[in-house]
Structures are given as C-alpha cells and as structure tokens.
Amino acid sequence: MKRPLIQPLILVALATVLGLLLNATYVLEVFRPVPELEVKVVGEYLPIPVEIADVEAWWQERGVIVDARSEAAFAEGHVPTAHSVPRGDRRALTKMVDCCLSDKVLVYCSGEQCDDSFIVGEELFRIGFRQVMIYEAGFGEWQSSGRPVERGAP
C-alpha cells in the first residue's frame, strides 16, 4: 500500500520539475517584478458602447485601439494597428502607458459573448485613459464584415 502513496508523489514531482524546466523563461518573466502602475482614476468607469461604423472611423483617424483577446487569437488576426492587451497582462498595460496614453481608447474582444473588453477597458481607465469605448460586437463582426485584418504576433 506504500507504493500507491509514494509513486503519485514521484509522478507529481517529475512533472513539476519538467514543467518548470520547459517553461523556465516564462515562469521567470511572470515572477519578475513589474513596476507599479500609477492609478489615475478620475470619476466613474462608464464605457461607451460603439458600433462598427464608429470603429472604422476611429481606425481611420488612427485612434488607439486595444485587442483584449489572448495573444494567440491576436496573432491569428486583429484590427490593423490594434495593440494586444490580454486580460490580466500587466506588462502589456505598462507598454500601453509608455506608448499610447491618451484621452480616448477603443477596446474589443471576440464578440458579445466575451467580457474581456469590458475588464481590460476598466484597467485602461484606471491607468489614465479617460474615455473608454467598447466595441461589443468585437472582432467576429469586424472580420465577417470583410474589413481589413492584420495578422502577426504583438
């Protein structure tokens, strides 16, 4: 009866060591301290829902657009010029402050069924983007409407 207790521990230990070795770079990156972002909340987070025509106009004006989906989904296709800020990715948020902090930002995710755009929009609001526009129909509608799509990793 001892073996069933020791062997599972060996299996878990082996998998843990292998997993951490395989993903050492990723794990070290995650645990590297990130400089604290300055919170600049003014007023209440009230995102503005926008339609595809508004998104197109904003894109043509070269406004700041944020893709709140995962990096892999972003790489498969995104609105041209969009920045990738997956939910919970503080490094990507820091990059947004460094590169593009402005009054207005437009955020989208996959479509009506996802809430990542809303959550990332709130994070952007907290770090200083005053007005957050949410494109609720998301990338699904943008792509199916035949509008331009850019591919490639962030």
Partner: peptide, 27 residues
C-alpha cells in the same frame, strides 16, 4: 490566460499551474 479566465487563482498561480499541468497530464 485560459486558467485566469476562471478567476479562481491569482495571476502567478495561473502561470505556475499552466507551466506544470500539461507535463503532469503527459506524465
């Protein structure tokens, strides 16, 4: 990212589980 969408673990917990769970499944 998929683990973090469950909103159960802190971000570092999700990263650790994501690093170890696939190898555990294979083992």
């Amino acid at each position: 990212a998929a683990i973090n969408r469950y909103q159960i673990l802190p971000l570092w917990g999700g990263a650790l589980v994501a690093s170890v769970l696939p190898t555990l499944e294979i083992v």
